[in-house]
Design a protein around this nucleic acid. Structure first.
Lengths: 120, 120
DNA sequence: CGGTATCCTTTTTGATACTG
DNA sequence: CAGTATCAAAAAGGATACCG
């Protein structure tokens, strides 16, 4: 049975948003699918550092939460294509904003981390 | 020394954003500090489910990344107040958007999870 | 190829106690 | 009160093998 230590607070948007998107790969994943990468094997190649197992798990969660859907082509070997649902697409502006923020902040972060490493 | 399995890609905004904000409490934390909750003990009370230890760790990371700063008042017992830096404040619109998205999506998530539980 | 299961390692977390 | 350390428990992650 579905269990959570801390129940979701449906009156708190951040609580809901974190339930759905609170894993570090999910923004990347939706972004990549939106860009047209639809097949699992291509997603593994496209997203630096993700493994098959983790990808599979997060795609499954995104599917349960209604952010993505998939089409199965019964060829051999089988082909599967993921796509964004309407809910998933509604996150795209947010993802774009996050991406933009990250790009703006990148130089500062780089210098911060350089200093950190120097200190050690 | 500072170690990462997957180096940050400074050309990818999402990579940078996830490095800084990719823990599920950080959005909540910045939001709560922005609302005026500044002291660690109050943050623990205000944020449902967070523990002192985790709070401390994430505040430390946010501080290293330049999202928050703190003022130490040398009273007894000591009093510490966290505040948002300019960088931290620059995330507020994003947090607000995320919060709004979550509120909009809440009813749908609630019904999805209800169905999930029924199925088991 | 997509998906699942297994085994094992690494991280994260919770509870607790201690210091200034 | 804020912050750190310790230890045990839980969760997440990598590698691999197998099935349809």
């Amino acid at each position: 049975m579905y269990q959570r230590k801390i129940p979701i607070d449906y009156n708190c948007g951040l609580s809901v948003a974190m339930e759905v998107m609170g894993s570090k790969w999910k923004f990347c994943l939706l972004d990549e699918i939106a860009k047209g990468t639809q097949r699992p094997r291509d997603l593994v190649k496209a997203i630096n550092g993700i493994t098959k197992r983790v990808l599979q798990k997060q795609l499954g969660e995104l599917e349960v939460h209604g952010m993505v859907g998939k089409t199965i082509y019964k060829e051999t070997p089988v082909r599967v294509e993921y796509y964004l649902t309407a809910s998933g697409k509604s996150l795209l502006p947010l993802i774009a904003a996050l991406d933009k923020w990250g790009l703006d902040f990148a130089p500062r972060l780089e210098s911060i981390l350089a200093t950190e490493m120097q200190a050690l």
